[in-house]
Design a protein around this nucleic acid. Structure first.
Lengths: 208, 208
DNA sequence: GTCTATAACAGGATAGAC
DNA sequence: GTCTATCCTGTTATAGAC
């Protein structure tokens, strides 16, 4: 999707980069045009309006965000192994795409009318898929808990704990740097080391 | 600060409410004037520009945010009791002020040049205070760990874990509602029940 | 101090030449 | 398809009457 160098995908990539960093209100069409190295009028030629352009970009990012979130769970690993694998892959994903979570969360907060069915349609039913994955994980948990291997736990709590611990430090990067006086390199190391910290915390919470 | 009903504080309160919800780019002076029930020109009479008005509002909110964050730690409780008390008071604070964390984080991300010394000056050295509190907590931890009462832990990890678990679900409210299919009331109950979930998780992580 | 009117400009969108 | 020029609306900011 980002390898074509025809004008349309050039615009898409530029728009994605600008929207990701500045959000809908902060992004300017002129800025997107400059980033793409083309003229403002061309943006409107390919995507009629700023709203439409944003819509396409947002749908793609939302898909990317949730697709990645759903990945490791459909394997044959134990719950603990799944959690561990999820932390590794999702932290790596976010280190490469640090703006995505803030962008998704801000956009969902900014356009609540887009909620529910509208987004379902634009994203091949991403929320339905998420719910089905969550249900499967809950079943796995119940099975392992019944076998006495782990403590029983609600998937909502486990999931929110996990993504909170992973995503928040990415969203709050500037704040964390300020409070702890970290530079870019310190910060990156901190996030990488947190992989193990988060694993320890969550695995421990499943011990009986 | 929000009890006077003279024009200046009327404007301040309106600006705070609008900026909190929409951020700098999304907020419009007209909207602020309407909310305050006065004319647009008066905004400029009291605060020369949108930037200046935003500056005053942001400083006040940043102070509020960090002051509340630093509170319970200066007591004579044990670490575990302090964590428990912090979770209770901070969750309650955020339920009453749900827009604050997203606003603070977005603003820090949007105006990185404001970092460090500028904000230090505008907030009575809030970051210096934070750092000194963190150092004190680290000392307490080291003492209790040396006495064999808890597992030793780095304050950075403990602090980031704690605020991640508390703040993320507030920032991501629309996302959580969507994924789990919660209405406003479900969501609020979920957050309240999480107090205990977070306490269990963190206290457990300190057991030897 | 507070208002109305308006200036000054930015930003999204379109027309029309090539 | 791509560009320049231009329109038009929304937004910040100021002038000036009261």
């Amino acid at each position: 999707m980002e390898q074509d160098s025809n004008t349309e995908s050039l615009i898409f990539d530029a728009a994605k980069s600008v929207f990701l960093e500045k959000g809908f209100d902060g992004a300017k069409m002129q800025n997107i045009a400059d980033t793409a190295g083309i003229n403002k009028a061309l943006l409107h030629y390919y995507y009629r309006s700023k709203e439409k352009l944003f819509d396409v970009v947002f749908s793609q990012i939302l898909n990317q965000f949730f697709k990645k979130m759903g990945e490791v769970w459909e394997t044959e690993l134990s719950i603990e192994e799944k959690i561990s694998a999820f932390i590794d892959t999702y932290v790596d994903f976010l280190l490469k795409n640090p703006f995505i979570p803030r962008f998704v969360i801000n956009t969902l907060a900014r356009f609540p009318q887009n909620a529910g069915e509208v987004l379902e349609g634009k994203t091949n039913g991403i929320f339905t898929k998420m719910k089905s994955i969550l249900q499967k994980i809950q079943n796995d948990i119940d099975k392992e808990a019944a076998a006495g291997q782990i403590k029983p736990v609600k998937i909502q709590d486990l999931m929110v704990n996990t993504i909170s611990l992973i995503i928040f430090p990415i969203i709050a990067e500037p704040m964390i740097k300020m409070i702890f006086g970290l530079n870019q390199n310190d910060y990156k190391n901190f996030i990488i080391q947190r992989k193990q910290v988060i694993k320890d915390l969550l695995i421990r919470s499943l011990k009986k």
